[in-house]
Simulated assay, not measured.
Amino acid sequence: MARLILFNKPHGVLSQFSDDGSGRPTLSSYIDVPGIYPAGRLDRDSEGLLLLTDDGKLQARIADPRYKKPKTYLVQVEGLPDDAALSALRTGITLKDGPTLPAQACRIAPPDLWPRVPPIRYRKSVPDAWIELIITEGRNRQVRRMTAHVGHPTLRLVRWRIGDRSLDGIAPGCWRDA
Rank of each mutant, 00 (worst) to 15 (best):
D64Q: 04
R3T: 13
V117C: 02
R90W: 06
S18Q: 14
S46E: 06
S28L: 11
R107Y: 05
T26V: 11
P38N: 12
R41H: 02
L14H: 05
P110Y: 15
V126P: 00
L133V: 09
S22G: 10
A109E: 15
A129G: 05
L4T: 01
L27Q: 07
P110Q: 13
T136L: 03
E78I: 07
L6W: 08
G40R: 00
D128N: 13
I162Q: 04
V158Q: 11
D164K: 13
T100A: 09
D82Y: 13
P38H: 12
D20A: 05
K69G: 01
L58E: 14
K71E: 09
G138Y: 01
W175E: 03
D43M: 02
P153T: 08
D64W: 11
A103W: 04
I93Q: 05
L27V: 06
R145V: 06
I134D: 01
Y30N: 01
L155P: 00
L50G: 00
L14S: 04
G21Q: 10
L52W: 03
D128L: 01
V77S: 08
T94E: 15
A171G: 02
P172N: 12
H152T: 08
V13Q: 03
T147N: 07
R139F: 12
P153S: 12
C106H: 13
T147K: 07
S22P: 00
